[in-house]
């Protein structure tokens, strides 16, 4: 098991009248190099889950695993392990506090107690990984950047720890279409070239669905679906009943199927939808 949970339960404010079970007996596994989406309504337990995967919360019961370790253990070991699991919060650039982009990205490596030359290497490496030329950017103030660039710097600040797993909460919130495209292209390339494992919580599936190889669906703290994207997004009426939206191309295909056309509805990007509608026409012409 690379990263995952075993019968993980988390109760906030246990033993009080406000006690709330945020996660209830959740078990799953994500393989190394996997690309998993975690979807569910607000309040379904997504944020609680990702905080457990990074060791920020302790299970009420059950266990969280990473690479053979139990994240529930205490001590120095846990700190070392946690560095391998990067967590990028929603709107991470709102947490910027440094005067220069260099210092912003250097914050975490410096906290590791690394030599300043090593810190510098990491900063430059991280900036180049997100496609920003180090020389042009390191001395600038983070607030002088565009929204898309700020998001990239926030990502570089986590990449400077050289994580093996990257967890992102709603990574495209507030980004325009081209900003979203650039971000997902970067995540896909880190996933393929560096075998980095991704876990992404999002409500907006249209662009990211095609990258994923696993989808986890949470409902009121329980894991109610876990499987390949085709399988999960194919269960359209169940998702809608849960207050979730399948990718919009899947909606179009399902509407066509409902009108009696012989098309697959487990399709969630434009090019596949185009090919499927063309297939229908070729089929008909024959």
């Amino acid at each position: 098991m690379f990263i995952g949970t075993d019968r993980l339960t988390h109760t906030y404010m246990p033993g009080t009248p406000y006690a709330k079970k945020a996660l209830d007996n959740v078990s799953f596994e994500i393989k190394q190099g996997g690309f998993a989406l975690v979807i569910g309504r607000s309040g379904s337990g997504k944020s609680t889950l990702i905080q457990h995967l990074n060791g920020l919360l302790k299970p009420t019961s059950g266990r969280v695993f990473f690479d053979g370790h139990d994240l529930g253990q205490k001590g120095n070991e846990l700190l070392k392990i946690r560095r391998k699991i990067g967590l990028v919060f929603q709107m991470p650039e709102e947490l910027f506090f440094s005067e220069t982009i260099f210092d912003e990205i250097a914050f975490a490596p410096r906290n590791l107690g690394l030599e300043e030359t090593e810190v510098q290497t990491r900063v430059i490496e991280a900036l180049e990984e997100v496609g920003m030329e180090a020389e042009q950017f390191i001395d600038r103030h983070p607030f002088q950047l565009s929204a898309g660039q700020k998001r990239m710097v926030a990502l570089a600040a986590v990449l400077s720890l050289r994580p093996e797993v990257l967890i992102l909460d709603e990574p495209t919130a507030g980004l325009d279409h081209s900003g979203q495209k650039i971000l997902f292209k970067l995540l896909a390339s880190l996933n393929k070239k560096k075998n980095m494992t991704f876990i992404i919580c999002t409500h907006h599936l249209d662009q990211v669905a095609a990258l994923a190889d696993q989808v986890l669906v949470l409902q009121e703290g329980r894991l109610v679906m876990d499987g390949f994207p085709q399988k999960i997004f194919g269960r359209r009426s169940q998702l809608i009943k849960m207050g979730l939206s399948p990718p919009v191309t899947a909606e179009i295909m399902a509407d066509l199927a409902e009108r009696g056309l012989d098309v697959r509805s487990d399709i969630f990007n434009l090019e596949d939808a185009r090919a499927e509608i063309n297939r229908l026409r070729r089929h008909r012409v024959k």
Binding site: D176, H177, S178, D206, V248, T249, I252, L270, E271, A273, R274, I277, N278, R281
Partner: peptide, 20 residues
């Protein structure tokens, strides 16, 4: 402008290129 239209517009425009 680096923007995208609705999925319906984008898909319709791809299908028109295919002769629909």
């Amino acid at each position: 402008l680096g923007l995208q239209s609705t999925a319906a517009v984008e898909l319709a425009s791809l299908l028109r290129q295919d002769g629909f």
